[in-house]
Write a protein that binds this DNA or RNA. Structure first.
Lengths: 122, 122
DNA sequence: CAGTATCCCGGTGGATACTG
DNA sequence: CAGTATCCACCGGGATACTG
């Protein structure tokens, strides 16, 4: 699909904002990035995402699993081990996010400065 | 900046989620896309973004202006005319968003199907 | 035309306690 | 270890009325 089509789809508001809202929440991207390095277990993810609560980690992982972006595999040992990993589509999301992250990092200072100037002007 | 650096920045949670949260709200992307075609006046934007309230359009445009992504120019006629346009950085955001939009469109069906299967399984 | 000013609801996400 | 279950605070965003 080329950029012209993408733009026309965008103008039709066809689910793009829906997806953006989906990954634009407080935790999804951070979890995807952690899993993009290697599969991880529940508490290992929790340690690598500072500030996240158990509940939100559970919720977000479930949502990612529901969307087919994350696989959940259980080893019935005692204690049980559960490993989370990105699916193929999940990996492609991580790639896409990396591009937006590049933009964010590149323009972070500019935005900070713009805000400071805007706020000073009042 | 290369992808390795981006990934390491991401793991440091350095403001990437902040930016994603910034543009991941309900209206920002749609407004940016409208303005990416050409500069527009207040009510023209409102007409092109179905469902947005006056208040949210005002709020979102102000936030974009504060971040240096949108320019606001006033013509002191009667009635007054106000034209909004993307700044250079705003244009680059539109480009970045277009990439993520491409991902969203490409994987929309897959996500819909995944959800349906997941929900059916309960 | 291009906004402000209020009021209010619902959902996201935090804290905490409990469980197989 | 890997979750569930509750309760609750905050605020994004809708509806509506008003203004220079």
């Amino acid at each position: 699909m080329n950029m012209t089509n993408v733009l026309s789809e965008l103008s039709n508001c066809s689910g793009v904002s829906e997806v953006l809202g989906r990954i634009g929440d407080k935790w999804t991207v951070q979890i995807v990035v952690v899993l993009s390095r290697q599969p991880e277990r529940f508490n290992s993810i929790k340690r690598q995402v500072p500030g996240i609560s158990q509940q939100m980690l559970t919720r977000t992982l479930k949502a990612l699993e529901r969307d087919g972006l994350v696989d959940r595999s259980v080893r019935h040992t005692t204690p049980p081990q559960v490993e989370y990993s990105l699916t193929k589509t999940g990996v492609s999301l991580a790639e896409a996010v990396r591009h937006l992250a590049a933009w964010a990092i590149e323009h972070r200072e500019f935005i900070r400065d713009s805000r400071a100037r805007y706020d000073d002007a009042r």
